[in-house]
Write a protein that binds this DNA or RNA. Structure first.
Length: 358
DNA sequence: AACCCGGGGTT
DNA sequence: AACCCAGGGTT
């Protein structure tokens, strides 16, 4: 079977023009908006992104407004979306575009790839959608679609596979409209050429698909499995001072949930009494003397990609002690707390705490 | 090349 | 429970 490229392009792009979803970032091709949407969509489903995208652009309507914002406000707009380094990189890159390029997103591969958080996929997506450049945008959808159309058996979990698919996408590129071509491949992967059971009977390019011709579409793409997750048991405390304010701390600027706020917490030490661990933790780490309940008020289970947490949360009341200078530690009112960016796991703790109090 | 980095929906 | 998602950075 030999694919007719021109017929394939026509069938694909025409299908896209007729069947594409009405999505907020498709209202115009402004580079800043395209860029924001592409970063939000990294490893994240369309339905999840839509409300975040609308709120984000309402708050930061221009790249200048975004670049000027405080990181705390930026993280708050991203709260719950995950992979928080995405928005910290986007923020740094937006500042660079404003300061170095006069607010104009660069339109060459070489320049745009140097921006923080812009890799091969995002570069191709922005350059094709916003600037009409014939650069491939190869994401998970596109690798799945092309593995079937062209019967490519490369393991898409391997780093080296991306090059193979980029070359394939470049060969197939519909030069009159790279934007439609790239988006059509992704839209096809999202709506028709899905991972489990692709809807081949509805597929506009079924006639051009080698995998369908040989009946192996369900076996593709080839992808090796990743390792399983590890587990951590943790203890957290919602600690109030004499004014009813609550102790929160800012996480480190690197690593998991970087720069987000949380309730003080620590890993469970096996065979040690949780209550004693917490008392000791507050005393040693923060020089705080507190009265902690002996029974946790909630138990929160939270699943990350490579890690699961089981957090037992206790209520406590400050007896004495003062916050020593470290800026990552603050007593805040409930209202102030809700203006800070918290990971979902600790939002669950706060929700349980409020429900207990009401 | 292997690993880290969130959260939620599907199967 | 495993898999996947409009991936990129770090080591």
């Amino acid at each position: 079977m030999k694919i007719n490229i021109e017929e394939f392009q026509h069938d694909l792009v025409q299908w896209f023009q007729e069947e594409q979803r009405d999505l907020p970032w498709r209202k115009d091709n402004d580079p800043y908006k395209v860029w924001v949407s592409e970063v939000m969509l990294q490893q994240t489903r369309v339905d999840t992104v839509i409300p975040y995208y609308n709120r984000f652009l309402e708050r930061f309507p221009s790249i200048e407004a975004f670049a000027e914002a405080d990181e705390e406000a930026v993280l708050k707009m991203w709260e719950g979306l995950g992979y928080y380094s995405r928005v910290r990189n986007l923020h740094a890159a937006a500042k660079e575009v404003v300061n170095k390029y006069g607010g104009k997103v660069p339109d060459t591969k070489e320049k745009i790839l140097k921006l923080k958080g812009v890799g091969p996929y995002t570069a191709g997506a922005v350059l094709s959608i916003a600037f009409g450049k014939p650069i491939p945008a190869v994401d998970g959808n596109v690798m799945r679609v092309l593995s079937r159309i062209l019967l490519i058996t490369e393991d898409i979990a391997k780093t080296s596979a991306r090059k193979v698919f980029e070359e394939a996408a470049q060969e197939l590129m519909y030069v009159p409209s790279p934007s439609h071509f790239n988006q059509a491949l992704m839209e096809l992967g999202a709506l028709i050429c899905t991972p489990g059971k692709p809807a081949c009977l509805l597929c506009p390019v079924r006639e051009h698909c080698r995998a369908f011709a040989e009946g192996v579409q369900a076996e593709l793409p080839v992808k090796t499995r990743k390792k399983s997750t590890r587990h951590e048991d943790r203890l957290a405390v919602v600690l109030r001072d004499e004014h009813g304010r609550i102790l929160v701390r800012k996480r480190p600027e690197k690593g998991l949930l970087a720069n987000l706020w949380e309730f003080p917490n620590l890993k469970v030490v096996p065979l040690l009494d949780p209550w004693e661990s917490l008392q000791d933790f507050l005393s040693t780490e923060f020089s705080l003397d507190a009265t902690i309940d002996h029974v946790s008020f909630t138990r929160v289970h939270h699943v990350f990609t490579h890690l699961t947490w089981m957090i037992d949360a206790f209520e406590g009341k400050l007896q004495q002690g003062e916050i020593t200078g470290c800026g990552g530690l603050r007593f805040v009112t409930g209202q102030e707390l809700e203006e800070l960016a918290f990971p979902v796991s600790h939002q669950k703790i706060w929700k349980a705490y409020k429900e207990k109090k009401s």
